[in-house]
Design a protein around this nucleic acid. Structure first.
Length: 424
DNA sequence: TCTGGGGTCCTAGGACCC
DNA sequence: TCTGGGGTCCTAGGACCC
């Protein structure tokens, strides 16, 4: 048996831990640049506000009753870690799957004790972190996801539900469930399944796996097996080093100023380099991309990308930033309102097996040791004194690219200086 | 005026080889 | 009417997740 533990309305719940006056009210957390709604409290869902709705599309009467907050990822990331730490008390097999969900394995545990353990987990997470969670048990990950949905929706379960592969209950649920509600089946696949006469999760489960594989892919075939109770989906190790590292942001305002693009890119490339060093990798190829705002169909559109190859694999921010800026030189065009620039580090390999090139000289070796020390120092300062303490060039004030984030709450758990008591 | 960011896996198809 | 067969490697793009 495996369980899926999912935090309820995670970002909103994090905010409520530190501001209890948000309890019982419609609350929404906004994406970067305060653009659209990425997390909703139950009260906001009840008002009919959809996930991903643009903030400015909210009806005035809904906006009036709703508390909208900018996202506070420093807070959510830290709270997420706390939740995972609590889960680790209950099983040696905790697989964090996203910022608000973990699979927790219970192989070998007495099946009769699972529901009780589920309730203990739920209560302990709530008590120690303040975050409400739901727990779903099942023989496979796809069914555990489903059990979790049931736990969340049906009050009688009190947040914990267990589904067997072949029980009458499971069959009833699958018959009522549209395929798109299954983990891993989204709109495109559902459209094609419908043409084959498959609309419910139960019909999908009854389909011939080999046939599904030939019409779709091995991914969909696995889902069929999992719906039948055969575990075939294994999770990747979430600690495994990334194969590519991307950093990009939309601008606060669109801009054609090359200074803005360069500054933003320098910032993103430096951030990507930090992530690279954190996983002890080196990269030998950098992709830079730019684009205008695709929603502004009234304006001329432009999107482009370029790959810059580095002479030798590196993790030095200076090399990576320089290569990115070089790439950008080829991408910028006059007359476009740019909305986004980003960088992706490719061809990532472990630094430990970095290959020496034929032209490697003692000077190169010396230089790479200096680079190593410099980057380690930069990372240490930024880690201990706060992000952005040491940067390659400072952003100008009032630049167009910096994020809009007008309603962010304090970073309660990671920044002492933001824990100031506000008095009347 | 305005619409997120970061990632993975899989497949198709082209280039190339013998 | 017909113009091999099989293989690898790489890239672009689709689909999906939260």
């Amino acid at each position: 048996m495996i369980s899926l533990v999912d935090c309820n309305n995670f970002y909103v719940s994090c905010e409520r831990v530190f501001d209890p006056s948000l309890e019982g009210r419609p609350v929404g957390v906004l994406s970067n640049n305060d653009g659209c709604i990425v997390a909703r409290s139950n009260e906001l869902k009840a008002l009919g506000v959809e996930m991903g709705a643009a903030q400015h599309h909210l009806a005035p009467e809904i906006r009036r009753q709703t508390v909208l907050l900018s996202s506070n990822y420093a807070l959510y990331g830290d709270m997420s870690k706390r939740v995972t730490d609590v889960l680790a008390q209950f099983s040696p097999h905790v697989e964090p799957y996203s910022i608000d969900e973990s699979f927790v394995g219970f192989q070998g545990f007495d099946p009769d004790t699972l529901l009780e353990r589920g309730h203990q987990m739920r209560n302990t997470v709530r008590q120690w972190t303040g975050i409400p969670v739901s727990v779903g048990f099942a023989p496979t990950r796809v069914l555990a996801k489903l059990a979790n949905q049931v736990a969340k929706k049906v009050p009688a379960h009190e947040g914990v539900c267990r589904l067997e592969a072949d029980s009458h209950t499971t069959k009833t649920i699958l018959k009522q469930l549209p395929v798109t509600e299954i983990w891993g089946v989204a709109r495109r696949t559902a459209e094609r399944l419908k043409l084959m006469g498959i609309e419910s999760a139960w019909e999908f489960r009854q389909a011939d796996p080999k046939h599904i594989r030939s019409r779709f892919s091995v991914v969909q075939e696995r889902i069929v097996w999992e719906l039948r109770g055969q575990p075939v989906i294994r999770l990747d190790d979430m600690d495994a080093p990334k194969k590519q590292i991307m950093v990009s942001r939309s601008f606060g305002r669109v801009t054609n100023n090359p200074h803005d693009l360069r500054e933003a890119l320098r910032h993103h490339a430096a951030r990507a380099s930090e992530k690279l060093r954190l996983q002890r990798g080196v990269s030998s190829g950098i992709m830079v991309f730019v684009r205008t705002n695709p929603f502004r169909t009234d304006l001329p559109q432009y999107r482009n990308r370029i790959v810059v190859t580095l002479d030798r694999p590196t993790d030095d921010s200076r090399d990576i930033v320089a290569a990115a800026i070089e790439g950008l030189r080829h991408l910028w065009r006059k007359g476009y309102a740019f909305q986004k620039v980003g960088v992706m580090l490719l061809d990532i390999t472990p630094k430990a097996n970095r290959q020496l090139t034929l032209t490697e000289t003692p000077q190169c070796e010396l230089e790479s040791q200096r680079s190593e020390r410099l980057m380690a120092t930069v990372d240490k300062l930024n880690r201990e004194l706060g992000k952005g303490t040491v940067q390659l060039g400072l952003p100008r004030k009032g630049n167009a690219w910096s994020l809009r984030s007008e309603r962010r709450t304090p970073r309660y758990t990671t920044q002492w200086q933001e824990l100031v008591t506000v008095s009347a």
